[in-house]
Design a protein around this nucleic acid. Structure first.
Lengths: 217, 217
DNA sequence: ACCGGCTAGATTGTCGACAATTGACCTACA
DNA sequence: TGTAGGTCAATTGTCGACAATCTAGCCGGT
């Protein structure tokens, strides 16, 4: 799913591990992160834990107050809306750029990916499950070829999005509609129509937000 | 200009200092950042330097390779374009949200700010100088009330933008035209027309990008 | 002369100990 | 009883030393 992360240093590994544990809910939202405690739990020095925590702060997964400590962020409705506004903006741009910058083979790969998903939908499997949706969005993000943008989305935003999805249990009913939206986005990209691709991607994410927002009220 | 940063810890101060020195060009782009050397220069321990560098890595001002070291990023045309694509996307969204979320007093403050600038323009002062432009964009960003978005722009993107501006010397000729663009954006926000505000802001940044791109060829 | 491996120096990564700050509890006093 | 102040334990911030890793230069073989 996500491309091979290659943890080199001990701090890398600890960062990835901690991030996974928080996103998956092993460490609950709002939890205080005690450096000494984590240090013993993960079997590394406090310096390593500190570096990992600082990186999590940079992705907005953890908040730190000087001389007081670090806490996992709380999952709020406002936070989720903020996140989706950013997604709408950045992924819309990614789709626009992808229409210009994806190679023909990348596009045909994306189309065949979509066909595979179509088969699953026909057989009644819920399409809007993590893997398929994430995979789709992921390829378009990579297709934009803007490294800074790619990094912001894949290193920063997406883990937070996933945290909300996992912990608020969002495997919503937007099955076939979401699939159609994906199909139209790919069509626009294949036609090299960046403007349309952006509009469609933004609407797609906006619908998603509205759907979730409805469920949370 | 930028709101009061309150450096608490020694690492905070070192981070701000280092960032300023890099953005202003005291430490040139592409320079290798030796931890021990910086440690003696700034009069703090290596741990503090490491934390500061890691934060700079998170803002994409510095790149680090494990076991090798950290370097200040190189300023490339591609990097600048990437940055402006992100700005177009995020600040467009900020303008849209600002049209909904700014208070009436914030809007009237913004209008009077623009009037002050207009006086300067009438008197022949180059409007498109750092202070005025940054101030304008800054207020709109804050006006969006999306804390995550605010943080991405003010902590992340803007220092890089400034680094390009300072080091590539961009005090371009877009004087009165930029002022008009600002005026129209404020009008849209005052009318609570988010959609138009976004379109105008995106075009404003796009023009800016084209202008710079033209000068760099 | 050129290429591959090896050694030495320097740099980064990790660790445990010490210093500084915070928050809570406890006490004294109005 | 409630509040202000002080004390103490616990946590975070900072430091210097040690271990692991990379780069550059040297040496020997082909």
């Amino acid at each position: 799913m996500t491309p091979a992360q290659s943890p080199i240093t001990s701090a890398d590994k600890t960062f990835f591990q901690l991030r996974t544990d928080i996103v998956e809910g092993v460490i609950a939202a709002g939890t205080k992160l005690s450096e000494t405690e984590l240090s013993t739990n993960y079997g590394v020095s406090r310096a390593v834990i500190r570096e990992a925590i600082n990186r999590l702060v940079a992705c907005h997964i953890v908040e730190r107050r000087a001389n007081v400590g670090a806490r996992v962020v709380n999952l709020t409705t406002e936070g989720l809306i903020e996140l989706y506004q950013i997604r709408e903006s950045l992924e819309g741009m990614a789709a626009r750029l992808a229409a210009s910058n994806m190679t023909d083979t990348e596009i045909s790969n994306l189309e065949s990916l979509l066909n595979d998903h179509f088969e699953e939908v026909k057989q009644g499997h819920s399409y809007y499950q993590e893997a398929g949706d994430v995979d789709f969005h992921y390829r378009i993000i990579l297709g934009c070829k803007n490294n800074h943008l790619i990094s912001m989305l894949t290193d920063g935003i997406y883990h937070l999005v996933r945290m909300y999805r996992v912990q608020l249990g969002m495997a919503g009913p937007r099955v076939s509609t979401a699939f159609d939206e994906h199909k139209h986005i790919v069509q626009a990209i294949a036609n090299r129509d960046g403007e349309l691709a952006e509009i469609l991607m933004r609407r797609h994410i906006l619908y998603s937000k509205n759907n979730i927002q409805k469920k949370l009220l």
